[in-house]
């Protein structure tokens, strides 16, 4: 065997070992019992956040770092308040048709707002990833658990970049890289591109998945915010089609017809 051939052979072996090591790393399975596979429906029942909500399925109750409910609007910085003023959520005098809610324009919901829609989500475990397939708007989230880091120098996206790891039976996911175009809820709460979302997913019993959510966005808020969301297992369900853009075809005329008169207080 000539020298170049030996070197080539060694390089091939080395590369092969690297690929194998990478594959083995990415194929680490979730810890035993920590499998969220299945279709889950958002609960409107009491959790840390929902217990005091007027409309528990469709709004979060945000707690401050001491565990006390925050006042409305949320504790924003000057930058956050300025952005908040530009948002027009629906309300006593603002119809859907007059709102600039990004959801009504069929943009992806972002994180954490995607949890406020009363539609199911399917969890799929694959080697190195946990996939969340949301029925509402067909949003998809990928939580990478293969040991990679966050994307570097990437353009922010609607659903962000999620990196996860397992702590016992809890999947801990950190999401960054979110654009600043989504709201936290129907109330128009804004955020910046600095938003960092930490979610802790844990199956508190066979049929219940608890998602503990902490938001940290020092550009828009004066303190971290914390809430929880619970989901119920639906063993017989499948994700169905829900295409938001159908509203452009089916629904705009109706929304114009029922709009609140402009001078309504």
């Amino acid at each position: 065997m000539k020298l170049p051939s030996v070197v080539s052979f060694a390089v091939v072996i080395l590369l092969g070992c690297c690929i194998l090591a990478r594959a083995q790393k990415s194929q680490q399975a979730a810890p035993q019992g920590a499998d969220f596979t299945g279709v889950w429906y958002p609960s409107t029942g009491a959790t840390l956040g929902a217990a005091t909500a007027d409309n528990p399925g469709q709004q979060f109750v945000w707690l401050d770092p001491q565990g006390k409910p925050t006042k409305s609007p949320l504790p924003m910085t000057e930058w956050g308040l300025e952005k908040f003023k530009g948002n027009r959520p629906t309300g006593p005098s603002t119809s859907s048709i007059d709102s600039n809610d990004p959801d009504f324009q069929c943009f992806p919901s972002g994180v954490p707002r995607i949890y406020l829609f009363l539609y199911p989500v399917e969890f799929v475990h694959t080697p190195g990833r946990v996939l969340l397939l949301f029925e509402y708007g067909h949003n998809i989230r990928q939580i990478f658990t293969d040991g990679r880091g966050h994307r570097q120098d990437a353009e922010p996206t609607w659903m962000g970049d999620s990196i996860g790891h397992w702590e016992g039976d809890t999947l801990v996911a950190e999401t960054t890289g979110l654009n600043d175009k989504t709201w936290f809820g129907y109330g128009g709460q804004p955020h910046s591109e600095d938003l960092r979302v930490v979610e802790r997913f844990r199956r508190i019993d066979h049929d219940s998945l608890l998602i503990d959510i902490t938001l940290d966005d020092p550009k828009a808020y004066t303190m971290p915010l914390h809430t929880q969301k619970k989901y119920i297992l639906k063993p017989d369900w499948n994700i169905m089609e829900f295409v938001c853009e159908d509203s452009q075809l089916n629904f705009r005329e109706y929304e114009k017809k029922v709009a609140i008169p402009k001078n309504t207080k």
Binding site: T44, D54, N55, G57, Q58, P89, T90, G91, P92, T94, S95, S96, S99, D101, D103, F104, L116, F117, L118, Y119, Y136, Y186, C244, S247, F251, E255, V258, A259, I260
Partner: peptide, 14 residues
């Protein structure tokens, strides 16, 4: 019961 599930648009009109 409160109107729930009107996800795509609000219920302010009602």
């Amino acid at each position: 019961l409160p109107i729930l599930g009107f996800a795509h648009h609000g219920t302010a009109e009602y």
